[in-house]
Write a protein that binds this DNA or RNA. Sequence first.
DNA 1: GTCTATAAAGCGATAGAC
DNA 2: GTCTATCGCTTTATAGAC
Lengths: 181, 181
Amino acid sequence: MTDRARLLPQLGEVFRAHGYEGASLALISQATALGKGSLYHFFPGGKQQMAAEVLAEIDAWFEHNIFAPLRDDDDPARAIAAMLKGVDSYFRSGNRVCLVGVIALGHARDIFADAVNGYFARWQDALVSALRRTGQSPAMARKRSEDALLTIQGALVLARARDDAAIFTRALADLKARLLA
Amino acid sequence: MTDRARLLPQLGEVFRAHGYEGASLALISQATALGKGSLYHFFPGGKQQMAAEVLAEIDAWFEHNIFAPLRDDDDPARAIAAMLKGVDSYFRSGNRVCLVGVIALGHARDIFADAVNGYFARWQDALVSALRRTGQSPAMARKRSEDALLTIQGALVLARARDDAAIFTRALADLKARLLA
DNA sequence: GTCTATAAAGCGATAGAC
DNA sequence: GTCTATCGCTTTATAGAC
């Protein structure tokens, strides 16, 4: 179990860099310094199980570090600020791509549809909860939370497309102002 | 040449659906109802040439239907409205993914970096031109054009992730209000 | 738990008949 | 211009030694 915990982040980076279909076992074997035999020992379900567990771990990280504070923090504005700080850190200020977004755009979405949809659904619900507690109407909270998720994803795409991570940093700064307006 | 013109949109849909690495020649052969021999007759450079020509055709479509009007229309507000209408139509109201964005997120970005960057760069420049002519400051025009591109890409990602095309429609409506505010 | 060897299928690409 | 056959390589996955 502890070996697996060290493995998942490495797998995540391979899937991030090459996508689900592009992440070959040869690349994974190289990135983890583990033979195929060992990989199948940990993940009898092969590549699909690897990706599923990586997605689950990402989901758990966001649940603990972002979603839960958004839902539970006594100071919702602080939780929102912490979300943006956490997001900036997680995505390395625009230099790291969102694996859930990558999978959503590819053909692998069909396999991981529930995980992909659930991740964004729970993020949005948690953010709606925080925005509501700052006194915003349900409609406004819903609209702004959708704007937030979409802005983060779009900024990551554009930053990578233009090879300019500053796009992501600017987008997060603007987003903060819009969310708390 | 005329055969190639009928081929490129079919190739585009395969790359859209499966990404660059996921689009195998078998899939392409099936989608075009053409054997590998014929495909290599049209594209001696193989898959890479196919994707490059698809990207070039997409670029040409946007150049003609979106970028040029943004730069040249006497009524910039009309050109911006036409851009949003054209974008909604091109992306099938959120049911069609952006191939340039898909490639930008994947490992194939390394090969097509210039095409990907140029597409977004010229789009932004054209939109800046239109916004400037509506009387907005250079800084404001630049910021809002970046917001526009990022919103469109993010809305496409989120719409597909949540399997809800209405997200894209809502995002375009909001964007229109923001651009012309 | 890790490795090598190997199987079976699929990959991009080419050759050559028609 | 289109096809089939084929090459050489890579793919996922399994088997079995250690």
